[in-house]
């Protein structure tokens, strides 16, 4: 009736609860404190009593769980199901999925964004949210019918109209944000060189894709993962280092191009044609200049 696992953990529970009570009374507990978990009286040393009580509770919960599920005892399970033969529960191998990995990258982005920039944080949260939905749908679709192909079709019919635009937007967002951190950190010349190299790589890959489409298609996921990883690490390093210093032009005529808040608030320079906009609207009346 009682399984071996239940008996073991229940005995452990009895030993631990007894130990907790004895420890409580010997370390300063009074009245019925150690018996009533401190309801009436002191329990003595809180730390030791707390540890023993917590372990006793865990043992009790495990023992109850084991007896509830019959602890893999064939005889007990047969008795519970009222059958002679126990059907072996199927252990289905789940199909491969990208979502666990994407979820880890999403959490990583959230962690980095929490420290560096709210936009990255929101992006990470959005990724995690997306993963929750996708993973749930995958889990549902795995079991909806016995046919794998039909399951995939059902899943795609529901999810494809949502996931293609959302994933595209997310990919662009990650690339733009991480790349911007890197480009803002390296020198001006370095930024130009970096973007040139990236452009050349994309061009080279596109050329390979045109020439040998099958070969190129094989490496798309690998390249995407490598690029994500490089961007992530580069983004962290760049953000830790901070942006490079931006020097504004020194000349008076150029400085007006960048300064909108002047000491004299009545005069605002129009950055388009350099004329003074007396209406503070940013658009000068060019006709009056001509006249």
């Amino acid at each position: 009736m009682f399984t071996a696992g239940f008996k073991f953990f229940f005995k452990l529970f009895v030993v631990l609860i007894t130990a907790a009570i004895v420890y409580g009374y010997t370390s300063g507990g009074n009245h019925v404190g150690p018996l009533s978990v401190g309801w009436k009286g002191g329990v003595g040393d809180h730390t030791g009593y707390g540890i023993l009580l917590a372990l006793a509770t865990v043992s009790l919960v495990i023992s109850l769980a084991l007896i509830a599920f019959r602890d893999a005892d064939a005889e007990a399970q047969a008795e519970l199901l009222n059958v002679d033969r126990i059907p072996i529960p199927p252990q289905r191998a789940v199909k491969a999925s990208w979502w666990p990995t994407v979820s880890a990258f999403g959490i990583g982005t959230t962690v980095i964004g929490l420290v560096l920039h709210p936009a990255i944080f929101v992006l990470g949260l959005a990724t995690v949210g997306l993963v929750v939905v996708e993973w749930t749908m995958d889990a549902w679709a795995d079991r909806v019918t016995g046919d794998t192909k039909a399951n995939r079709m059902l899943r795609n019919r529901i999810m494809a109209p949502i996931e293609i635009p959302v994933l595209g937007a997310l990919a662009v967002g990650i690339v733009v944000l991480a790349a911007s951190r890197i480009l803002l950190t390296v020198s001006a010349l370095g930024a130009v060189l970096a973007t040139s190299v990236i452009a050349v790589i994309i061009l080279a890959y596109a050329s390979v894709y045109v020439a040998w489409p099958e070969l190129a298609r094989k490496f798309i996921p690998e390249l995407a993962i490598l690029a994500c990883f490089v961007l992530l690490v580069g983004g962290v390093l760049a953000a830790i280092k901070g942006e490079r210093e931006f020097h504004h032009p020194e000349s008076s005529s150029d400085s007006t191009l960048y300064e909108t808040d002047t000491d004299d608030a009545s005069e605002t320079h129009n950055p388009i044609d350099g004329n003074i906009d007396e209406n503070h609207s940013g658009i000068s009346d060019t006709s009056s200049v001509e006249s």
């Binding site: 289905r92 789940v94 999925s97 666990p100 880890a104 990583g108 962690v111 980095i112 690490v233 962290v236």
Partner: peptide
């Protein structure tokens, strides 16, 4: 057993560990 209880969670655990460790060491 043929499989782990939550094989996808196991894969998620690996990548979570790897990315967390990368962030930790790099920082």
């Amino acid at each position: 057993a043929d499989v782990l209880a939550f094989p996808r969670a196991a894969l998620g655990a690996f990548w979570c560990w790897l990315i967390g460790a990368t962030i930790m060491v790099v920082s």
